[in-house]
Structure formats: C-alpha cells, structure tokens
C-alpha cells in the first residue's frame, strides 16, 4: 500500500471509531470522550507549534482562554448566538497568538518559554482584574440560547458529542493537510535547522509566526467549543496548569505526530480520572508522568513507534 493510502486508512479508521463510540459507549464515557476530543484539538494546536515547529511555549492557556472567553463573553455580554460566538473565539485565539508571537518570537529557547509564560500569566491576571466583564474568579455560565448552533441543543449529550466530533474531524483533517503541505515541511525545517532554512530563502520569524497563529487558532477553537459544550467559562482555564496540559498530552502521545495529542489526552484524562478516584492528589500523577516521560520516553508513545518501524506516521 502507498504511504498516502496507509495514512488515510489509519486516520479515517480513528475517526470512524470515534464516530461509532457514541453509540457503543455508555453515556458517562461518551461524555468523557467528547471532552477528550476538544482537549485533543487544543493539544493538536500545541503540537503544531511545539512538535512540528519546535516552539516550546508555556503560554498556550492564554490562547485557549481567549477562545473560551471570546465565545463565552459574546453570548454573556452581547447575547450573540452560537455560530458568531464561536467565530469570535477562533479569531480571539489566533489574534492573541499573533500578538504574543510578534514579541515573543524575538526570543528563543528558554527565554521564549518564560516570555510566553509571563504573557499568559498577565492574561490570567487581567481576567481577574476586569471581573466586571469576565466574571473574575467565579467565571460565568453560558446560557442555553447561546449554545444552539444549527438548532442543535448542545446541552444534550447527543448533539454535544456530535459537535465535539465535528470539531475534532475538521481539526484532524486540517492538521494532516498542514503537516503534509509545503508549509508543513518548512515548519519542520525551522525545528531542525533554522540557520539552514534561512539560507534556503525562508524568513524564520514569518514561518514561526504563521505556525503560532495556526496553533492559536486551534487553541481558540478548542476553548470556544469547550465553553459551548460544557457551558462554563472560568479563570482557572487561563492558569499555568492549562498551558502545561497540552504539553503533557503532546509529550505523552508523541510530539510531531498528528495522532499524538489525541492519544496523550485520552490516556491522561483516564489516568487522572482513575487516580482522582483513589486519591485527591491527582496533580502528583501529572507530575510523575511529566518526569517519567522526560526521563524515559522523550519522544512519546507514537514517537517511539515511529522510530521503530512506522516511519510513515505523519
């Protein structure tokens, strides 16, 4: 079979399985899976920046929160309906990534990590500071009238799963197309050897900025859908922990592999779900997984698989 055929078969199969899951799984797990798919889209966006372009950001919570607040506040403050609110969330995520990128991409490596962390922290504090418009610490509930795209009531389990699936399917297709495109190849070139890329005629700043904006668009989309599907917008989603989560998912599943974030998000979600049933110290699990990954599996699960034979994995 051709490489292209294998890729289509694998990713099509994953989508088919996810589609079938809503009819096969009990409601509790189906709801979990809907959440996992939205978080996976967030992590896919993170993977575009980190896994493919080599930009290790610690500030993606800002882009996720911008998507979430962009969509949520459009409903809460100006009573927009779901579709324009979601569009607002997407735009907010991308614009925030562009603005942060314009400044942060003047630095690299550790400085880039700290700068993105600081911008995200400032964003979180701004949400607290402007509590009158954002709901501050307590956040706010997205009312039902703003959660009915195309007449689908996202408060119900069925439509909620369908919406999460649609988002995930589009994001996955987009991600595959991106990394197999010419621009995807240039992103990899930036990660592998920036100096050489420049001497092949590419402007590293522009390439990285565009990759970061696409990444922010994904994070914004995930944030907007999160608000729509689960009906709550809160400052905790803008905290550092929410910048660490997509990094964790991506590292676990495999950085620079399209399906890595989904696998990482799914495993981590259930790991925490099970651990929090046993102990309140679920953050301990997160910490331990981070340390173990960095020590023993820096390429992640699918990354290791790709090194051991599945070289075609995009």
């Amino acid at each position: 079979m051709t490489e292209r055929g294998k890729i289509l078969l694998l990713h099509g199969g994953v989508l088919l399985a996810l589609f079938a899951a809503q009819y096969l799984l009990p409601a509790y797990h189906a709801n979990n899976l809907a959440r996992i798919m939205v978080l996976a889209v967030y992590a896919m966006g993170y993977n575009i920046a980190f896994g493919y372009t080599g930009l290790l950001s610690l500030g993606h919570a800002l882009f996720f929160a911008m998507g979430m607040y962009g969509a949520g506040m459009a409903v809460w403050l100006v009573e927009w309906t779901a579709l324009p609110a979601i569009a607002m969330g997407l735009a907010a995520g991308a614009v925030a990534a562009g603005a942060v990128g314009l400044l942060a991409l003047r630095t690299a490596g550790v400085s880039f990590m700290i700068v993105t962390l600081m911008f995200a922290q400032a964003g979180y504090l701004l949400i607290l500071y402007f509590a009158r418009y954002t709901g501050g610490d307590e956040g706010f509930v997205v009312e039902a009238f703003g959660r009915r795209p195309f007449g689908l009531d996202l408060v119900q389990d069925g439509p909620r799963y369908a919406a999460a699936f649609c988002l995930f399917a589009v994001a996955l297709a987009g991600n595959l197309a991106l990394v197999r495109s010419r621009f995807g190849r240039v992103m990899l070139a930036m990660r592998e050897n920036e100096a050489r890329s420049r001497m092949l005629g590419y402007n590293p700043f522009r390439v990285k900025l565009l990759a970061l904006v696409i990444s922010g668009l994904y994070a914004g989309a995930a944030g907007a859908f999160y608000a729509m599907l689960f009906g709550y917008v809160g400052a905790s989603f803008a905290m550092v922990q929410y910048s660490i989560l997509p990094l964790l998912y991506t590292l676990l599943g495999g950085a620079g592999v399209v399906l890595g974030p989904l696998l990482g998000a799914g495993l981590m979600f259930y790991l925490i779900d099970i651990a929090s049933g046993l102990t309140s110290a679920y953050l301990m699990v997160v910490g331990a997984v981070l340390v173990v990954l960095v020590l023993f599996a820096p390429k992640g699960l699918l990354g290791a698989l790709r090194e051991r034979g599945l070289k075609w994995l995009p």
Binding site: L56, L58, G109, V110, M113, I244, L247, L251, T279, S280, A281, L283, M284, V286, G287, A288, V289, L290, V291, L293, V294, L295, P298
Partner: peptide
C-alpha cells in the same frame, strides 16, 4: 534546558501534592 523545565514542572507538582498529602 528545555527538558529540565518540563521535568522541574513535574517535580513542582509532585512536591506540592506531597506537602498537601
């Protein structure tokens, strides 16, 4: 440098939760 940041984030979570427990 980058792996150390990720690893020390992990240690941070572990220490905080250990103190809590």
């Amino acid at each position: 440098p980058e792996a150390t940041i990720v690893a020390t984030i992990g240690l941070l979570y572990i220490f905080e939760q250990a103190a809590l427990s």
